[in-house]
Design a protein around this nucleic acid. Structure first.
Lengths: 239, 239
DNA sequence: CTAACATTTTTCCAACTGGTCAAAATTTCT
DNA sequence: AGAAATTTTGACCAGTTGGAAAAATGTTAG
């Protein structure tokens, strides 16, 4: 499966600034794409990691290249050598994010039984909120701003995936294995409840207080959500 | 009930820049606070309204005074005449927001029955997401950034309120009127599911598509959430 | 070793940022 | 109306921002 259509952004990064050494021969149209070096990959990863940190905390506009460069441990011009513009960094980040972010939903298996499937979907999402809160916040930040830079991916890739899974849910409902309800809003509610623990982490911790705000909160959340969704979705006693 | 401890921020705005006309007499310690004029109130409201628009979209760091001034239809220095610093605007906004934002939870009545109470709490929150999405996003933005400017309010006012309502929920559980579960996470899940429709509005609309993404989505959400929470919280058949 | 390329640093810039200040315009009060 | 206060404006500033150019330094294949 191709890593979602990340449109341009795929250019080999260098070659952009390099003096066009086409003088020698303008014969090969696909012009040697120049293999990506070890350093390139390493530094790019470093930058993306730093950018994730900064963007997820301040949003696109609020983040500065200097900040990202500092976190990445390099100078600003050096960073700009790898990603010639701020937007490129963000675009790459979002492109990669969307793929991994939707993986849990992709795994929901139409051939499985609804409750085990939904239950483990919720668990996986909750684990992601716990283990990748920055990714969650990056996504949330983009959404809050109206998703200007990923609206297309949302409207195409995300929508298609959700449509597909909504159909799966409907099938389960038809089979009487699941309460008949709105599959889209069902998915929304799973997203909302799980991502809440990453995006509103400060609030969750503050409200739970030092006693219950520790690491145990994810276990508690899992237990609670399981109960909420299970008994909310269990069809009335079979006939 | 005082509008939550908004600490300073309460100074009459003017008098800050006014040349200290104390030359006449340094006799009255509480120095005439100079009544707030009509224009002051009007312009301040204008600014706060514009600031809500901009802050909710770009977060604190990402928003600029120029932007706010433009939306408010006045020059930057003029805006700064009313709010001498960017942070003041934000602080005021957050202070007022928290009060109105928690009103629905405050209304949850310990003397009522759990289901009608919870049901109408969900409805009220959903209505707020529909009618005041910018407020919701402003709040979300602040949370995403770790709530640096309102952490204190969160830890005190919000926590106290939630503690109180959690006790109410526990009472209902003790009385067997509600499934025994974690009252804190229950409240979180209501916040998450309802605010999702304001904060992730773009996503919701994109996924529902032009057909179902219209105004009806809030009604659908209300119906779905009601079902989710109702049947998830209904205690097992009485003995 | 060295030419060719890749990486990094230094210097620089124009636009934007939050904010100041004094003067001018307007409103309010008597 | 006229004085006093309030409000608005225009010019200005120092620091930050995203980014460009080019020189300096590494790295590596032949």
């Amino acid at each position: 499966m191709p890593p979602t259509k990340v449109k341009s952004a795929e250019v080999p990064i260098s070659a952009t600034r390099q003096h066009k050494a086409d003088a020698e021969a303008a014969s090969h149209p696909p012009a040697k794409p120049r293999p990506i070096t070890r350093i390139q990959r390493e530094k790019q990863d470093l930058i993306l990691e730093a950018a994730l940190e900064v963007f997820s905390l301040h949003g696109f506009r609020g983040a500065t290249i200097d900040q990202i460069a500092e976190v990445a441990g390099m100078s600003k011009p050096n960073l700009l050598y790898y990603f010639p513009r701020k937007e490129e960094i963000h675009r790459r980040l979002m492109g990669e994010l969307l793929v991994t972010w939707l993986a849990p939903l992709r795994e929901m298996d139409a051939n499985g039984d609804p409750f085990p499937e939904i239950r483990s979907y919720i668990r996986r999402k909750l684990e992601m909120a716990r283990d990748f809160p920055r990714e969650s916040r990056l996504f949330a930040n983009e959404m809050l701003q109206g998703a200007p830079r990923i609206i297309e991916m949302i409207e195409v890739d995300l929508k298609n995936l959700v449509d597909e899974k909504a159909r799966v849910l409907l099938t389960w409902m038809d089979q009487g294995k699941l309460t008949r309800t709105d599959p889209y809003h069902l998915i929304f509610s799973i997203w909302a409840t799980t991502q809440h623990y990453a995006d509103f982490d400060v609030q969750v911790r503050a409200v739970l207080g030092p006693g219950r705000g520790g690491e145990g909160r994810f276990e508690d959340a899992a237990r609670y959500l399981e109960q909420l969704f299970m008994f909310g979705l269990t069809p009335k006693a079979r006939t």
